[in-house]
Amino acid sequence: MTMAGVDVPALSVQDMTVSFGRTRTIVRAVDGVSFSVAPGEIFGIIGESGSGKSTLGRAAVGMITPSAGAVRHGDVDPFALSRAQMNAHRRKYQIIAQDPNAAFNPRMTILESVIEPMAIARTGTRAERRARALEMLDTVALSPEMAMRYPHELSGGQKQRANIARALVLDPEVLVCDEVVAALDVSIQADMLNLFWRLKRDFNLTYLFISHDLNVVSHISDRVAVMYFGKIMEIGPADDVMNRPLHPYSEALRSAEPEIAAYEQRARERIILQGEIPSALNPPAGCRFHTRCPRAVDLCASNEPDQRELIPGRFVACHFAEEMLARFLPVGGGQEAECVSQE
């Protein structure tokens, strides 16, 4: 990969595990996840509801402490910082939470809430902070009239945009976006995605971009990781994962994605996942996807597949990843030689 390797990653996690609950009802929301994100890279995360995406995002910025493994912000270990150091550090690593209400105090106006992080970080004068907040709200298409309102007086999408403004006022270096465009109409969503892209291009902003919308993730991301029950099933360049999914779960996600009927040229094959959805309280042995995987064989129920780098930059955890890949190669193997030669 061109982007990784050159610089110290802006964000990296190594064998990270995050557990909740006590012995009998322990949930490993994130279970041994590793990846790193280069400065200026947009790293997308998609996956099943409850697969641990939000937990991963919160641990990545240091909001919750992993039970095992390491997190690095550049070469800093955020969990080794003193409280004072953490306060100074935190503004560089921001998260926009999935629940837009989480960031707002119901008794503060939107403007006050957007000013608050700057006041805590003691940036600028009072007047400068106010001007900056209004400017940021304007960037997300919220007028001064909206700024004077209380959270409950805004629509869902307006609140979500105020949340984006609040995370951007401190000029973060790394931004974790947790379903931040889910409540927006497609036009404003396009506006926000263009904004995220400009901030990356002009200020080298780095993103961990969590979304269940495959169109959004594949459009905005350089690379994506596909999660299922606390584990990463597949990592690779965004377009490549979308066009040539090498894991049966990514393939199912891709095929279940709804399309506008009028745009649909060909009847798409849709893979409907059947079988029991496992519970995070007692995840299946072997491959976690085996209870629903259309390709599962006995081996899958007993042996957990290792994550392997199948072609440069494409990591897959499935016993049959080679076969999945073979389907995308032309018969005769002319292209195969080319793929292998990249190694």
């Binding site: 009239e145 497609v186 036009s187 404003i188 396009a190 995605l193 169109n215 959004v216 459009h219």
Partner: peptide
């Protein structure tokens, strides 16, 4: 029509989604 043209698709260059220009008035 504008909404239908704003939908992201993987084929489009990044940063160039067709948002409807301007804003809803107050």
């Amino acid at each position: 029509t504008g909404l239908l043209h704003s939908i992201p698709d993987a084929g489009r260059a990044r940063g160039t989604l067709n948002a409807i220009p301007g804003r809803v008035p107050s």
